[in-house]
Nucleic acid binder design. Structure first.
Lengths: 181, 181
DNA sequence: ATTGCCATGTAAGGGGTTACATGATTAT
DNA sequence: ATAATCATGTAACCCCTTACATGGCAAT
């Protein structure tokens, strides 16, 4: 079972940007990569402890500016090496589960008009997602940071994906309207 | 915790096409929807037993034509109703985890040339996937079955996705070549 | 001989989400 | 007052894959 815990590497990767608390890591992920990657607190906090025990990160308690104390973690050299090794390995193919597609695939059970509602909902959801990504792109294009090109690449992947989905919704709507119930 | 077991509905949906054994269900999924949905035997066989106990499907033992005995399941009216209710509910948003995008996002750690290798591998994988889907499209277009329009819709979604990824690979390659290590 | 397909199933165990618990500060 | 944000963490529990077990038949 070579199924390595990818949360580990996600956290290590975040800490290459700057030192962060568990709360910061969660916010960072939600803001930058949530369109293709997510982590929950239930994963983040235990993983931070494990990484510290292994010496891949180091935590320091700080008084919170406006709120409770924070534990801010920074990546160690050992952590950077561990992350680097993983980053060089080929990526595992994604195991996707699109409930939208699944429900549409079984559309013959509920008929074309009910199926079209799924398309309509997907269109709305995708539109607002695209708006969000487009706004982020404007911000990112101003950045000269060393990671900006990589962030832009995945961000534009998300935008292309959204645009593709919207075009597919149009085409599918046209096709399904021709289906007799 | 309203996290309903979607394997149940996947199996019920398959059985609306025709009666199938667990083995058939697995093969059917692999052939038709594996580009966006997968199930393993470890899920399928226990779920079949549960569905039968609930009266949503009925199994009958048959002698295998060339091999061991098979248990062929057919969906009941109760099963059809259960599936129909679920199909009418709005789809849950997909929780995706693209390792490819994640590794690229942290590309500043390994630099542009190593990151480009990820793009190259993704391109190869996507090309063969697109070939596979295009061949399936040719077959499906001949079908006059009631489910053909829905199968075509999701299949073309997969093809659009693959084409989008290939175009993104080209654009990303161009962009990353300009990045100095 | 041995590989591959047909066919059904179980056990182990990691991955991951959700819900809960706690409590201070800040804004409305 | 009340809601939202900051902040850390645990417990329960489901989801799902992988690996294993078993064995007959067909093809190379």
């Amino acid at each position: 079972m070579a199924r390595l815990n990818r949360t580990r590497f996600t956290i290590l990767g975040c800490l290459t940007i700057e030192p962060m608390s568990g709360y910061d890591v969660k916010r960072f992920i939600d803001r930058t990569i949530s369109h293709f990657w997510n982590e929950s607190y239930g994963q983040i906090y235990p993983t931070l402890q494990a990484l510290e025990e292994e010496g891949l990160i180091e935590g320091e308690r700080e008084p919170g500016e406006r709120g409770p104390d924070r534990v801010v973690f920074r990546i160690t050299n050992a952590g950077r090496e561990d992350l680097g090794r993983w980053l060089l390995e080929p990526a595992e193919p994604a195991v996707t589960r699109y409930e939208h597609s699944l429900k549409l695939f079984f559309g013959h059970v509920i008929g074309p008009s009910a199926s079209l509602q799924h398309v309509e909902r997907l269109r709305e959801r995708t539109r607002s997602e695209l708006d969000r990504l487009a706004a982020a792109e404007v911000e990112l294009e101003k950045s000269a940071a060393s990671w900006a090109p990589y962030w832009l690449a995945v961000l534009r992947g998300g935008m292309r994906y959204s645009e593709m989905v919207l075009a597919w919704c149009d085409a599918t709507e046209t096709d399904l309207r021709k289906v007799t119930p």
